[in-house]
């Protein structure tokens, strides 16, 4: 519906990422990006979606900036903080050892990223090849493994982790999902999307399978790999129930667990601090997303291989 008319710039951006010498930086001109009417429609749509997606969250963010003398709720409460302050954020750091929590979360994230990216790429690639016996069975196994209601397997999982001696360790948090079926399927879909004729002609050109994997498939799946990366990051970062069951010691808690402290106290809590905690846990993911988002949209057409 909103597919753009290809313009000169499209090709320009596509080339930008290749090894080809960068064209000299040109002066910014709106008309490089499309016809005025189309641009207006696009931005209106973008703003509309922006209101829907971020609007509901904005109020919470603003709450975290309010000072203690302001009402958080009620008719006296204003949308914008009257005396914006970072006090709530300081309190989060005072009340719980945020740095330790973040460090622990990062360890789980690092372990997960490594195993997920490596193994889901490998498995996804093989599953995209129909040329071996058992491919259907493995596919079915992976699909099925996503369908078990977590609560119903949780206790058995915990018993396995205990038998491995991993209770109260970050490895125990990481292990049961060290390669997620969902990521394997994402990679499989990415590899399947590589047109067959390209592979055929690469074969005719004499490229062996490893070469085709390395120089054709891998570059064209970069986008999906970054999707896997961000998904993995979030899953490891946000998980609550499983770490809660595995971890015990204060020094091992992950950020989500640690921040839960702020809001479940039966002795009252400060809404501003709870919101500040949420913002703190959201920021690293958002930063990562901002950095990686340019990679999502990378495939055959703009990766290292171009045609």
């Amino acid at each position: 519906m909103t597919t753009s008319t290809p313009t000169a710039t499209d090709t320009a951006t596509a080339t930008e990422t290749t090894a080809a010498p960068r064209p000299a930086r040109r002066r910014f001109r709106w008309r490089d990006y499309g016809r005025p009417r189309e641009l207006v429609v696009r931005y209106l749509l973008l703003l509309f979606v922006l209101a829907i997606t971020v609007g509901p969250l904005l109020w919470q963010f603003l709450t975290s900036l309010k000072s203690t003398t302001e009402d958080v709720f009620g008719t006296n409460a204003t949308l914008l903080p009257q005396h914006p302050t970072l006090r709530a954020y300081e309190q989060v750091f005072d009340q719980v050892p945020v740095a330790t929590y973040i460090w622990n979360s990062l360890i789980v994230v690092a372990l997960s990223l490594t195993s997920q990216l490596l193994f889901s790429t490998m498995a996804g690639y093989m599953l995209s090849k129909p040329a071996w016996r058992g491919v259907k069975g493995v596919w079915l196994l992976l699909i099925a493994s996503m369908m078990f209601p977590f609560e119903s397997i949780m206790v058995s999982l915990f018993l396995s982790v205990r038998d491995l001696g991993l209770v109260d360790s970050l490895a125990g948090v990481w292990l049961p999902g060290f390669v997620g079926a969902i990521n394997v399927l994402v990679m499989r879909a990415a590899f399947l999307a590589v047109p067959r004729e390209i592979e055929d002609s690469a074969m005719l050109d004499g490229a062996g399978e490893w070469q085709r994997f390395r120089y054709l498939y891998l570059p064209s799946a970069l986008g999906s790999m970054s999707v896997v990366a961000i998904n993995t990051f979030i899953a490891a970062w946000d998980d609550f129930l499983w770490p809660l069951i595995v971890l015990r010691s204060e020094e091992n808690l992950t950020l989500t667990l640690g921040l839960a402290r702020l809001q479940t106290s039966s002795f009252g809590y400060d809404q501003r601090v709870v919101m500040a905690g949420s913002v703190i846990s959201l920021v690293p993911v958002l930063v990562l997303f901002v950095i990686t988002q340019r990679w999502f949209y990378k495939g055959v057409s703009s990766g290292a291989v171009k045609f």
Binding site: S115, L127, P176
Partner: peptide, 12 residues
């Protein structure tokens, strides 16, 4: 595919 199979089988 072994790692993925092991993970799905052992923990699923």
């Amino acid at each position: 595919t072994l790692p993925a199979i092991v993970c799905a089988a052992a923990f699923g």
